[in-house]
Simulated scan of single mutants.
Amino acid sequence: MAQEAGGDKGAPVKLQLNKTENAGDACRITMVVDNSKGSALKTFKVDLFAFDTEGVAQKRVAVELAPVASHKTTVKIFDFPGIACSKVGRILLNDVLACDGGEGAREACLERTEVESKGTIPFDR
């Protein structure tokens, strides 16, 4: 049983950049957070950068994606203010700023976070 619980510690948290749309002067992001194999996260704050189509860093946002229930997939919506989606060339998961839940230290959460993009804007780590 302890071994089974320990399996959750390294279970991936998958972040999918699912949809982007303009919302006034911001690029609105729809992010799917797939924690279907892991334990609950009380805090999961990520540091994201939007790069323009020339590869120059433009906007930085810190986004709290928690709470994330154990073995659950959720959807979070947030904005990159001051940049139109058509001007975003890629989004980078720069870091995990905070992570609280299970045995997840911040560094361990970064290591187990996987990213993908469903749309036209690449999402990297």
Rank of each mutant, 00 (worst) to 15 (best):
A2P: 09
E4A: 14
A5N: 13
G6E: 11
G6F: 11
G7I: 12
G7M: 10
K9P: 04
K9V: 15
G10E: 12
G10H: 11
L15N: 04
N18R: 14
N18F: 13
T20G: 02
T20A: 05
T20N: 01
N22T: 06
N22P: 04
N22I: 01
N22V: 02
A23L: 11
C27Q: 01
T30F: 12
T30E: 12
T30H: 13
V32Q: 14
V32D: 13
V33D: 03
D34F: 07
N35C: 06
S36P: 07
G38P: 01
S39F: 11
S39Q: 09
L41W: 02
L41N: 00
F44C: 04
K45V: 11
K45N: 09
V46Q: 02
V46K: 05
D47A: 07
D47V: 08
D47F: 05
F49C: 00
A50V: 02
F51K: 00
T53H: 08
T53N: 15
T53K: 14
E54V: 06
G55V: 01
G55L: 09
A57M: 12
A57R: 14
Q58L: 03
K59W: 00
K59I: 09
K59F: 00
R60M: 13
R60W: 07
R60N: 15
R60F: 07
V61L: 03
V61C: 05
E64M: 06
L65K: 03
A66I: 06
A66Q: 02
V68Q: 05
T73L: 01
T74D: 12
V75G: 08
K76S: 10
D79S: 06
D79R: 05
F80K: 02
P81I: 04
C85Q: 06
V88N: 00
G89I: 00
D95S: 10
L97P: 02
L97W: 07
A98G: 10
D100K: 11
D100P: 05
E103V: 08
G104A: 14
A105G: 13
A108D: 15
A108S: 15
C109N: 03
L110C: 08
E111W: 00
E111R: 12
T113L: 03
E114D: 09
E114N: 08
V115S: 01
E116Y: 08
S117L: 08
K118I: 05
T120D: 13
F123A: 02
